[in-house]
């Protein structure tokens, strides 16, 4: 087995071999193949969007994906929920000396696979190799460019108002639960599959057919954090019904064991959408083609406390805060 050496990062012959022998053939992008200092491409649009994100997940191979897939999906999804069509992405790698080249190959192939599925082209990249111990295996940064096809259809926070409903595109907490289930000896024999997936197709179909007032993908901090951000930015209150939020049994079981709250578990292929009541049926029709678990989970109120409330099954309205300390109990 071959491993990444310090020399792979020194800009010399071995770097050249790595780029031309590994990255370029897999990514296969015409723009990339030119090997110019900058990639030049055409984005025929009045408005373009750009987003960037770094990925440091451990383990880098997990059930349902790997760090490569994650780095493409994460950036594609950020563009998609903003109402943009993802077109191009760049990829930078920071690799620890001694990293298996075979693993790198797998990761890069996976990036290519999901770039193709999402319909984006990888147009620029960079690789740095750092000394053993300076980073943990591999870090990937991706930057994405998307175009706006119909400006008037762009979701925006200003469109949110009382009476609208909140929809989630699938069951929540899978990615976070997946990563936890991978920590060895976590007691769970079956690993949980991550929900990591590109969302641009489903979102594109939604945007063509219904008016989406606002969208947000669920990432770190999960559903609770995403909803809190929306409530804050839109100055509204959001009510969620506990019974309606879809959580798979395996995620529930893991949360039970670890004493975690599924509302705060990360997702990597789910989003919430705020829509007008009358669009509910059509929205759900489209969403359910992609994920049967998609459903309405709550509603918006104009009360302006900027809080997220959880209507629990046994009375009382719990506050679903944005948390400062992820796992610290408040109970005395």
């Amino acid at each position: 087995m071959k491993f990444i050496q310090k020399e792979h990062g020194n800009g010399g012959k071995q770097t050249y071999e790595l780029i031309n022998g590994l990255f370029k053939p897999i990514f296969g992008s015409e723009i990339l193949k030119r090997g110019d200092d900058s990639s030049i491409f055409d984005l025929a649009s009045k408005k373009i969007g750009v987003t960037t994100d770094s990925f440091v997940v451990k383990p880098y191979f997990f059930k349902g994906g790997d760090i490569g897939k994650l780095s493409v999906c994460g950036t594609v999804n950020d563009l998609a929920v903003s109402g943009l069509v993802p077109k191009y992405i760049t990829a930078s790698f920071i690799i620890e000396e001694g990293f298996p080249i075979e693993d790198l190959q797998k990761i890069v192939r996976s990036m290519k696979e999901y770039a193709d599925i999402a319909g984006v082209e990888i147009v620029a990249g960079d690789t740095k190799v750092v000394e053993k111990g300076s980073c943990d295996g591999i870090f990937i940064n991706t930057t994405g460019f998307g175009v706006c096809e119909k400006e008037e259809r762009l979701p925006s926070i200003e469109k949110i108002k009382g009476g609208q409903i909140v929809i989630v595109s699938g069951d929540i907490g899978r990615h976070g639960a997946c990563i936890y289930s991978h920590s060895s000896e976590l007691g769970v024999e079956e690993k949980i599959e991550s929900d990591c997936a590109p969302l641009n197709r489903v979102i594109n179909e939604l945007l063509k057919n219904v008016e989406i007032c606002y969208m947000k993908d669920l990432t770190r901090g999960g559903l609770a954090t995403a909803l809190n951000e929306i409530a804050q930015k839109a100055s509204v209150d959001i009510y969620i019904e506990e019974d309606k939020v879809p959580v798979s049994n395996e995620v529930k079981a893991l949360c039970d064991i670890l004493g975690l709250d599924s509302y705060y578990l990360a997702c990597e292929g789910r989003f919430v959408a705020v829509i007008n009541k009358e669009d509910k049926q059509k929205t759900l029709e489209i969403l359910k083609k992609y994920n049967k678990e998609a459903c309405e989970i709550g509603w918006i109120e104009d009360t302006k406390e900027k809080r997220v409330y959880l209507k629990t099954s046994f009375g009382g309205t719990r506050i679903l805060d944005m948390l400062y300390y992820e796992m610290l109990p408040r109970i005395c």
Binding site: Y180, S183, E185, L186, G187, I257, L258, L328
Partner: peptide, 16 residues
């Protein structure tokens, strides 16, 4: 079995 699973998590999971 459930308690045993929780016990096993203590080895690796960073409980507060």
């Amino acid at each position: 079995e459930f308690l045993h699973q929780i016990f096993k998590t203590a080895q690796t999971f960073n409980y507060p």
